[in-house]
Simulated assay, not measured.
Amino acid sequence: MLDTIQAINKTAAFNRWAGFEVTSAANGEAELRMNWREEDMGQYAGFLHAGMIGAMLDTVSGYAAATVAGRVLASHFSVNCVSPAIGRAFVARGRVVKAGCKQVFAAAELYAQGEGADSLKLVATGNAILVPVEDPASAPPKKAQPAA
């Protein structure tokens, strides 16, 4: 499963730009890592921008859901910033809370990593509702609509 999620991650231009690295993915759980770049990831006070925080939490929630439900899209997403996001790298962990046929509920946390690999500080949490979607390649062709 890890290889599949890593391959999916490589197809997303934003994820490549941000430097998201999928470090684990299996059984309703996923983890991402991203190194801090001061020149283009910060907000006015020098912390990780909330948009980047949201992107990591959204992505890791989707990858966790994908391990149990295949291709998914977020239908709802929320973020709680609990501490200034300051670190040399950031680690996002997502997990499936409940997977149904039509919805997958996921929760995620984002940690700032300091100088030591074990120095993780919680900076944000998130929740997502994701919906399974068909792979466009396997969807039946749409019927042509008559001109009005």
Score class of each variant (00 low, 15 high):
Asn80Val: 14
Asp58Tyr: 10
Lys121Thr: 11
Ala144Thr: 06
Cys101Asn: 14
Arg33Gly: 12
Arg33Tyr: 06
Asn15Gln: 15
Ala112Thr: 09
Val79Thr: 15
Leu73Gln: 11
Met34Pro: 13
Ile5Gln: 11
Ser61Phe: 11
Phe20Glu: 09
Ser61Asn: 14
Asp58Ser: 13
Val123Asp: 01
Glu21His: 07
Arg93Thr: 06
Arg16Met: 15
Cys101Leu: 14
Asp118Tyr: 15
Val60Phe: 10
Glu109Thr: 04
Gln103Asn: 05
Gly62Cys: 00
Val60Ile: 08
Trp36Ile: 10
Tyr63Met: 13
Leu57Met: 09
Pro141Ala: 00
Arg93His: 07
Val133Met: 01
Gly70Phe: 07
Lys10Met: 13
Gly100Tyr: 03
Asn80Arg: 07
Glu31Phe: 12
Asn127Phe: 08
Gln43Leu: 03
Ala147Lys: 07
Met1Trp: 12
Ala66Thr: 10
Met52Tyr: 12
Ala148Trp: 05
Ile129Met: 02
Ala30Pro: 13
Thr11Lys: 02
Thr125Gln: 09
His49Cys: 06
Ala64Val: 13
Asp58Met: 07
Val96Ala: 06
Arg93Ser: 08
Lys143Ile: 08
Arg93Val: 05
Phe105Pro: 15
Ala66Trp: 01
Asp58Phe: 06
Ile53Arg: 00
Leu73Pro: 12
Tyr44Trp: 03
Ala50Phe: 04
Ala117Phe: 12
Gly94Asn: 05
Ser24Ala: 09
Gly70Tyr: 09
Val82Lys: 00
Ala45Lys: 01
Lys142Trp: 12
Asn15Cys: 13
Arg88Phe: 10
His49Gly: 07
Pro146Lys: 01
Phe47Glu: 02
Ala148Tyr: 04
Ala55Pro: 15
Ile129Ser: 02
Gln145Trp: 08
Val131Pro: 09
Glu29Lys: 03
Ala128Asn: 08
Asn35Gln: 08
Ala12Gln: 04
Val96Ile: 05
Ala30Tyr: 05
Gly28Ser: 03
Gly28Gln: 02
Thr23Phe: 13
Gly28Tyr: 00
Ser61Pro: 15
Ala30Thr: 12
Phe90Pro: 00
Asp58His: 11
